[in-house]
Nucleic acid binder design. Structure first.
Lengths: 166, 166
DNA sequence: GAAGATTGATCTGTCAATCTTG
DNA sequence: CAAGATTGACAGATCAATCTTC
């Protein structure tokens, strides 16, 4: 039996598929990061402000924030340190569990988020969702959801306790 | 006219779509990184070894490597420093342009790559390509390619010059 | 003077250890 | 003694500056 050209695992279709995933994702992220930088925000800082703004009382526990952003708790401590230094968030004690702390978005933080968000949405539309037909986008999101559910079975988290009101 | 509940830009469908992209990608990357770590490799080190192994003479210019991995040239200098220290690559002068240097994969480097690659392919199959039907995968890749081409119009690079033969 | 590569200073993130509270 | 949060020491990446070659 003639073997012909030996298999080249480095050129496997799976490598190509993942490479495409990487290039699309990192390229898109770079476009978004550029805008964040223009507003003096790191991507993770934007993400934290966004998650806080969507949460009841604008507050989340440090641990929840860390889990939702796939960051270590010590890393999140430092992100909140920076955001607090710029008065975009404040720390609030947790009444029901004295070990815990909330990060809570301030009016300053909401204002900065409002500055960034419209352009951010435009960029997602321009470089991501707007590149595809409605049907293509629906199919893409369905596939991404399958993958997400497989690799992140615990992709839910929520606030609890009693942050201050303002 | 009744406006009803005011628009909440933080909950825009575009945000949800991008969030799904982030979760799927970072979750998958984490699975792959776990295996790299088990083989004492950083993800970017694996990527460099893979790209070198696929290139003529197993060599690429520092600048090309940096561009292909979306890394700064100084960052790539340091990656190659580490890989050279472990004798997975060597530096080779470029004959046609004396400012340039090639990183060239060694037999040690190819051996380490061969250790990692089978498990790596299995993981991509398990957590990514194997999660989807052939039709779904084709559609996903077509959409990713559209996005990649939009955000990275310059996604090609190649070797040039005259690396040593090893 | 511009480009390829490296180096020094600095920034951001993690891990291990620590402190406090459950 | 386990869990939430922080801190010190350190690894990894970038930017600006530098050196060599085009």
């Amino acid at each position: 039996v003639t073997k012909g050209i030996p298999a080249a695992p480095e050129d496997d279709a799976r490598i190509t598929a993942f490479g495409l995933f990487v290039e699309a994702f990192t390229g898109l992220s770079a476009k978004l990061a550029e805008q964040f930088a223009a507003h003096r925000l790191a991507p993770v800082e934007f993400e934290v402000l966004l998650r806080l703004a969507r949460s009841p009382r604008g507050a989340l526990r440090m641990t929840d924030l860390a889990a939702q952003t796939s960051m270590s708790t010590s890393g999140m401590t430092r992100v909140i340190d920076r955001l607090e230094r710029e008065s975009f968030v404040r720390r609030t004690a947790c009444e029901s569990d004295r070990r815990g702390w909330f990060a809570q978005i301030t009016e300053n933080g909401r204002a900065r988020l409002a500055d960034v968000l419209p352009g951010h949405l435009d960029l997602i539309d321009k470089w991501f969702t707007g590149q595809l037909s409605k049907h293509e986008l629906d199919a893409l999101l369905a596939s991404l959801r399958k993958i997400r559910d497989a690799v992140r079975p615990d992709a839910t988290a929520g606030a609890s306790g009693e942050p201050g009101t303002g």
